[in-house]
Design a protein around this nucleic acid. Structure first.
Lengths: 195, 195
DNA sequence: AGGACCATGTAAAAAGTTACATGATTCA
DNA sequence: TGAATCATGTAACTTTTTACATGGTCCT
């Protein structure tokens, strides 16, 4: 059984760029799609078997030593386009941090402050990473445009921009939230912080 | 079996504010936490049974006709605080839209444009809704501060601000992405659009 | 020879959704 | 009386994670 159209989509999409072993496929998904997607081995291997059974991918006997890569077939490319054309919906949200903050009046003020400062730090790191990625991808996209060949970098850039805007929003929000709770909240307890 | 600490947390948290039937509990979660949380009946009822078996909630024989509400016990409040104190992690992301956009060079330009305009419209609607909620909650929070009593509105405001910043970021991103793909992209195909 | 990493898979458990079945209450 | 909504629950299914088992390759 194909695990799910979603996993199929991710796997076929990745293989449409380059043939890969299951192991590397998963590594690429983690590294390259990691900002917005995730798959575990427990999904990738069964998905590959199912896709192979349907003739959408095939093993490409590699001379090289390690593992046999999978290659997408013509039918697989058709299926990929088909999947991309189907309507989709975002799953219902489940934000652990916001759930806890909602009940923030039930916990010590220090804990809430910690949640928010950690969120702020994380968001700032994300923002910096996305900035770097953006610079790289803008150069790549410009090169592609000049060469008139592949178009992929533009779309990868769009996904990175989503991450960047999101990270910026989280930074602003965390700062605003900290200020809001400070103002009129209980004063910081004890000499524990570094700030 | 308690479905999960997460569902437990949401259920105990909601009951810490007010006793409710399972049905209304779920409705409140959808309406009030809906921006960042979700539970289905299939989780709420088993979770309530499990919590009752552990003595964390109890049924409060209501004189009124419909259903018997659940009420949180003292042990339940302790457990809630305990759960709120435990470390947590955000689950790995799975963004259907970004996954599809990443492979955007494999689909017609019109489809990509549609994805982005729909995302833009949705984000604008979200933004307007969050703006309204913010106005309401700012008033509530001010009233609470003046009265010196409950503190809940400030935390609810913080969660709404998260939604607002996120929606604003999605609006900016979608606009930027549309502009980016227009510039140098294939011209719009056919006289189908309204723009 | 040994450690790190590449590679392939399976099995069990957890988490969550969806659909179904059933009945009470309220309101027009 | 009939429809809408409130209410409670179960069962089957889907999806996903986690942990385990196993062996190859490459580098030192």
């Amino acid at each position: 059984m194909a695990r799910t159209p979603q996993t199929q989509l991710a796997v076929l999409g990745a293989l449409s760029i380059e043939p890969m072993t299951g192991y590397r496929l998963r590594a690429e998904i983690v590294q390259t799609l990691g900002h917005f997607w995730h798959e575990s081995f427990g999904q990738v291997y069964p998905a590959l078997s199912a896709l192979q059974a349907e003739g959408l991918v095939e093993r490409a006997e590699a001379g090289g030593g390690s593992g046999t890569p999978f290659r997408i077939t013509a039918a697989g490319r058709r299926r990929l386009r088909e999947l991309l054309g189907e309507p989709f919906q975002q799953p219902p949200p489940r934000d652990q941090l916001l759930l806890r903050l909602f009940f923030g009046d039930q916990v010590p003020a220090d804990l809430v402050r910690r949640w928010l400062t950690e969120a702020l730090t994380g968001a700032e790191e994300d923002r910096a990473r996305y900035e770097r990625l953006r610079t790289e991808l803008e150069a790549e996209a410009a090169a592609e445009a000049a060469a008139g060949g592949a178009r992929g970098a533009r779309f990868r850039l769009v996904t990175v921009l989503a991450g960047l805007h999101g990270a910026q929003a989280r930074v602003r929000w965390a700062q605003e939230a900290l200020a809001l709770l400070e103002e009129g909240g209980a004063p910081a307890a004890g000499p524990a912080g570094t700030a």
